[in-house]
Design a protein around this nucleic acid. Structure first.
Length: 456
DNA sequence: TGTTCATGG
DNA sequence: TATCCATGAACA
């Protein structure tokens, strides 16, 4: 990728950023090597057992018979042939090239008919942990330290990337996988590992471009909640009837996909797939949300899709019209000039799709907030000879290895820099910024980090 | 080497 | 003209 800073200040951000990331890389993260070796062996045994269990399944016996010596349980090609040509299952998803997919979602749907898929799902998860994460830790560690690279010059949006090992995609959504992998990661002796992340930074970053008044009021007014409001509309609920699960579905099944450029046919489909997991719980009832929607006259998927279409129309035309205008203006500008600029002074040019034109500048500056803060914090730690060090970064989160006696002063420092100094440096940041801090115990492991409640 | 899958923001 | 950005493993 070619870097196009359009100002000295943009150049300076990446120059100083590169130096700061070099410090972070040199610092390194403690990894528990004996633990990784032990887990590697344990998972190896479990993989062996699961493969033996698979051999006992009738479907797998037929698969083996079909492919003979070429049989390979890890071949998605063979699995696809068995499921869709041999067993005549209905495809659920298609791959980029149009073939029926054998991804996790497909396996989950087909596992009722073909129980061996349940074992295969399990096997894939364990193999992922062993062959991607533990094996990479063991390969890359030097004297019990990992030194992931953080590159600033590879990503088209002017974000960073990380490799060897990638420190930006350790499992966390699946608690079992997350636990096994993150137990390997520790602070230095007498330290805590801490993650300090910007809350909702991309939504805020977008608002600095489009300045939609409704969005700005969502960000400023803590009693307001966009995701909750969308859950109300999407599931025909009152404010009080929204719970954490329906809010989560609205956020990740509608709001974010819509921001990234998805549209109602896709979002309605995803929401509908998820709806059976949701319930309406209050004093009088504990019925499924699907039944609740039926009472409101939404009887089937077709009706739900029309409902989501109306919600989407309202979302972009009535709720956030200024945001919509900005998106159109942004695309017009690109079509005329062939580039778009970031608020931080970088330029994206070349062939871009509409969704990229809209998203690149937002994603870039969201990361630049973290990068600028990291540079400042790192400078203070070095200048004042702290024992606390920054050891990593995950797009909107700084990871630090914090010496216990420096803990409270460190928290003051990062809050001051991340929420306040940065707003004096970049006056186009027109909303408040907030951080969330999660920490391990002293000498604890990365899997057990918990939110630190701040008294400020 | 390209494709598909899985992991994260 | 329809979900943005990555890395890494395994297969063919």
């Amino acid at each position: 990728m070619n870097i196009h800073p359009q100002s000295a200040e943009a150049y300076q951000l990446f120059h100083l950023g590169t130096l700061a990331m070099a410090d972070v890389e040199a610092n390194g993260i403690c990894v528990d090597v004996p633990y990784c070796e032990e887990q590697y062996k344990i998972l190896g045994k479990r993989i062996k057992t699961l493969k033996e269990d698979l051999d006992k399944e009738a479907d797998v016996k037929r698969w083996k018979h079909k492919f003979g010596t070429k049989f390979n349980i890890d071949s998605d090609d063979q699995l696809g042939y068995m499921l869709f040509d041999y067993f005549k299952c209905n495809p659920i998803n298609t791959t980029k090239s149009g073939k029926p997919s054998v991804d996790n979602e497909t396996l989950n749907v087909l596992k009722d008919e073909h129980p061996f898929l349940e074992i295969l799902i399990n096997l894939r998860k364990i193999q992922k942990v062993r062959d991607t994460y533990l094996s990479l830790f063991l390969r890359e560690q030097v004297d019990g330290f990992l030194h992931p690279f953080f590159d600033l010059t590879l990503v088209h949006t002017y974000r960073s990337s990380s490799r060897s090992p990638n420190w930006q995609n350790l499992p966390v959504r699946d608690p079992v996988q997350g636990k096994v992998v993150r137990k390997a990661i520790r602070p230095r002796k007498g330290h805590r590992l801490m993650g300090i992340d910007y809350s909702g930074i991309e939504v805020r970053a977008a608002s600095w471009y489009h300045k939609d008044p409704t969005m700005l009021s969502y960000i400023h007014d803590k009693t307001k909640d966009m995701h909750r409001d969308m859950a109300c509309e999407l599931y025909c609920l009152s404010l009080k009837e929204v719970n954490s699960k329906s809010r989560y579905s609205a956020k990740n099944g509608f709001v974010f996909p819509e921001f990234y450029g998805s549209y109602y046919k896709q979002t309605a489909n995803d929401l509908w797939k998820n709806i059976d997991k949701l319930k309406l719980v209050n004093e009088v009832t504990q019925e499924s949300l699907k039944k609740h929607l039926k009472k409101k006259g939404i009887l089937n998927y077709q009706a739900y899709e029309r409902h989501v279409q109306r919600v989407e129309d309202n979302f972009w035309k009535k709720r956030f019209p200024v945001y919509t205008q900005w998106k159109d203006k942004q695309v017009d500008f690109y079509n005329e000039h062939g580039y778009v600029d970031l608020l931080t002074g970088f330029r994206c040019s070349g062939v871009m799709r509409k969704n990229q034109v809209i998203n690149y500048p937002v994603q870039g500056i969201a990361f630049h907030c973290l990068l600028w803060s990291l540079i400042q914090v790192n400078d203070v730690l070095k200048r004042e000879k702290w024992r606390t060090r920054i050891v990593g970064q995950i797009h909107d989160e700084m990871v630090a290895d914090v010496y216990e006696p420096e803990c409270s002063e460190f928290i003051d420092l990062v809050q001051r820099v991340m929420c306040y100094s940065i707003r004096r440096h970049w006056n186009w940041i027109i909303t408040p910024l907030e951080v969330e801090i999660k920490s391990t115990e002293v000498d604890g492991t990365w899997d057990e980090k918990k939110e630190l409640k701040l008294t400020a």
